[in-house]
Design a protein around this nucleic acid. Structure first.
Lengths: 113, 113
DNA sequence: CAGATAGTTAGACATATGGCTAAGCATGAC
DNA sequence: GTCATGCTTAGCCATATGTCTAACTATCTG
């Protein structure tokens, strides 16, 4: 299991939290200071800080401090590994789709009874 | 926060674990019984069962029992919400880049004068 | 029926996660 | 210098997660 694997796990893990996804969506509008990001979440600053730390470790955001204000910004390229994984999976999964589709339908039918 | 949100969180969470991703990759080769999935992970059966439960709750796999054998199979459509989210983000994130681009151009122009 | 096979359930346990409060530490405004 | 602002650190707490062992159920096989 390469570091590549860890990257993906961190990425998925970071995105698994609604608060963090909403922070990302907010940041998509442009860079913002910590407090501005905290405000709409209704969470306390330290809590938001930890979310930001998770996002930063996953490489999804970059931050820098100017005076006493820390500005956060998204790192668009960060989603690439995920996109790549998704595309890989699609290729494999879809190559079996016809066969699996039959199987899944059979399973679903059995479930209903 | 709608059900949609929970779906995404569950999906990302399910995919955040390397063991679960490897199980999915294995299943991409075709449906398989529990023990066959457990073997390459080096984990005990109950542990693998829990991973399978997580995958099933996220809608990523479907299972059915025939005799004493439970067969698992991937559910390709399950990745759709994630793909959709990813595409949405790409649109926003990239439009942000465009805006930044505009901003830079504006600054450069102002500098010239 | 006896024994092997394939899952399943229950419960224990260590660590991780997400939230909070209460201080603490720079920096900017007066 | 003093005070407000904005972030940080430290530490607490409840719940969730990933792993295991041990014991149980259900289903073939002979």
């Amino acid at each position: 299991m390469a570091k590549h694997d860890t990257d993906l796990s961190d990425l998925f893990h970071a995105l698994a939290d609604p608060t963090r996804r909403s922070i990302l969506t907010h940041l998509a509008q442009g860079p913002a200071p910590v407090s501005e990001l905290a405000e709409p979440t209704g969470l306390r600053l330290p809590t938001v800080m930890r979310h930001l730390a998770v996002l930063e470790e996953a490489g999804l955001i970059a931050t820098s401090k100017d005076g006493r204000v820390r500005t956060c910004a998204i790192v668009p390229e960060a989603l690439m590994p995920m996109r790549t994984w998704l595309d890989e999976q699609r290729v494999i999964w879809e190559s079996r789709l016809d066969r699996l589709d039959d199987y899944v339908k059979k399973v679903m039918k059995e479930r209903e009874t």
